Each structure stands twice: as structure tokens, then as C-alpha cells.
Simulated assay, not measured.
Amino acid sequence: MPSRLNPDDQKRVDEYLSAPQHQTERRPFRPLFLLAMVLVVVIGLGLLSRLLSRLVL
């Protein structure tokens, strides 16, 4: 997709984004870890709701 910026503006944007302070090291995305965390939270909240319902009733 061609840029809608004129070449001078695009050059400034590229220089800005390539500056060292805008480069961050990221850990690789781990979908299985995310799935495990979601399951732990859902199961934990389910157990908490069962505990609270036993205390109330």
C-alpha cells in the first residue's frame, strides 16, 4: 500500500521510528501460555463463586 505522505514527511517518520529509543525488545508471543492463564482465571473465579454461594446459602 503506497504511503499517503509526501516523501519528506515519510522520511521523517521513518527516521523517528528507527531511532534507538523507539526500538523495544519483545518476548515472543506464547498463545498456549495465554490460554493457560485464561483457564486459570476462569476456573479460579468459578471456584470463588461456588465458595461464596455456599457461604451465603
Rank of each mutant, 00 (worst) to 15 (best):
A19I: 15
H22N: 14
P2W: 04
Y16T: 04
S18H: 02
D9Q: 08
G44I: 00
S49G: 09
D14Q: 12
V40A: 01
P7Y: 15
L39M: 01
M37F: 04
L51M: 07
R26W: 08
H22R: 13
V13L: 12
L34G: 00
H22G: 03
L5H: 06
K11L: 14
Q10V: 05
E25D: 15
P2M: 13
L34E: 12
R26K: 13
T24D: 14
V42M: 12
P28C: 06
E15W: 02
L45W: 10
S3I: 07
M1P: 03
S18C: 11
M1H: 00
E25H: 14
P20Y: 09
P31I: 11
Y16D: 11
L57V: 07
Q23A: 09
V56P: 00
N6K: 11
N6G: 02
L32Q: 15
L34P: 00
R4H: 05
L45M: 11
M37H: 11
A19K: 10
F33W: 13
L39Q: 07
K11R: 14
E15M: 12
L57M: 06
P31K: 13
Q10K: 14
M37W: 04
R27D: 14
P2H: 13
D9F: 06
L35N: 12
T24G: 07
L52V: 13
L52K: 11
E25G: 06
M1Q: 00
